[in-house]
């Protein structure tokens, strides 16, 4: 039964993922005094791109075409490891957070390789930035996971059952009230991570047309047609993953139907929040971005130390 419920939630998440960028764009449009493009625009775009032809450079190899597929599939697989609404993921296992992190890392690796494969100097620059920020962001993710794991073990969750489903399904609010409020800080560092990993302002500007300043967008400049559709869809799934991680930290345990609704509401709230952030602040200068990620890492490390000394 749980398996069916989870499957339903997974299908729902995969179907609704392209809605998130639509909501962000609508929020930004409202701030700018515009009506904005349709909330469903990404669906239209994907439907259009799937039916289009594709132009591939003569110098590109199979690595170039494999990039989008790998990054999309890894994002979907990573999502399937997460609890999506009160039910443990049937694919989860002890220590699955490491797999989750490296599935995302693998997607990034494929995108970076595809970008380098084109030989364009822009894409090379974008790839180098993505690799750098990815490398700095990874420890932040693991420090956050570690803090959760260490709290979970000291609160009596057996060390054989430490999975994403155990950590991100009402556990964190339970820990807050059980005298471990330091986990609240993880919301901040995971929030920063969401912005970094999904290339949102203040780290990257998803709307810019200026190749020299882009990070993620510049790596996919040469992709077109179905492959671009895969990239766009994969990016929206990745945004959903981080929104779910954030939601999993704050939603307390409740009945499955209520949890599912709360999860959806939280994901859309994150989308609105990202839209607001993008509307009210400017990008950071690129050499300050590592400092921002480092700050998130410091917060997570601080939480980890607090959980260890207790």
């Amino acid at each position: 039964m749980d398996f069916l419920v989870y499957l339903l939630q997974l299908v729902l998440a995969l179907a609704l993922a392209p809605l998130v960028p639509g909501i962000i764009n609508r929020v930004k449009a409202k701030f700018a005094g515009r009506h904005g493009k349709p909330v469903l625009q990404l669906y239209y775009d994907i439907a259009k791109l799937i039916r289009k032809g594709e132009v591939i450079s003569d110098t590109a190899t199979w690595v170039f075409t494999a990039g989008p597929v790998v990054s999309m599939v890894t994002a979907v697989l990573a999502l399937a490891l997460l609890p999506l609404g009160g039910v443990a993921s049937p694919f989860g296992f002890n220590g699955d957070f490491i797999l989750c992190a490296y599935l995302l890392g693998m997607g990034r690796f494929a995108t970076v390789l595809a970008a380098l494969d084109t030989g364009s100097p822009f894409e090379g620059m974008g790839a180098s930035r993505e690799a750098l920020f990815g490398a700095i962001g990874e420890p932040v993710l693991f420090l956050s996971f570690l803090a959760l794991v260490s709290t979970a073990m000291s609160m009596g969750i057996p060390s054989t059952e430490v999975s994403l489903s155990a950590l991100f399904c009402g556990f964190s609010p339970l820990a807050w009230v059980a005298g471990r409020p330091e986990l609240m800080l993880l919301v901040a560092s995971m929030g920063v991570l969401l912005l970094v990993e999904n290339c949102r302002i203040p780290v990257d500007d998803p709307n810019t047309h200026l190749e020299l300043t882009m990070i993620h967008e510049v790596m996919v400049l040469d992709h077109s047609g179905p492959n671009l559709a895969f990239i766009l869809y994969g990016a929206s799934v990745k945004l959903w993953i981080f929104a779910v991680l954030l939601a999993g930290l704050v939603i307390p345990a409740m009945p499955v139907w209520a949890y599912t609704l709360a999860m959806l509401a939280a994901v859309f709230a994150v989308a609105v929040l990202v839209g607001v952030i993008e509307s009210i602040m400017a990008r950071l200068r690129m050499h300050i971005v590592p400092a921002l990620i480092g700050l998130a890492g410091a917060v997570s490390a601080f939480v980890l130390i607090l959980t260890l000394v207790r």
Binding site: A32, G33, I201, N207, T213, E278, I280, A282, R283
Partner: peptide, 16 residues
């Protein structure tokens, strides 16, 4: 300049 820093409001308003 607002647009290039990714600062949306001024970028949009000044266009009008």
């Amino acid at each position: 300049i607002g647009g290039d820093t990714g600062f949306l409001p001024t970028s949009s308003w000044n266009g009008r």
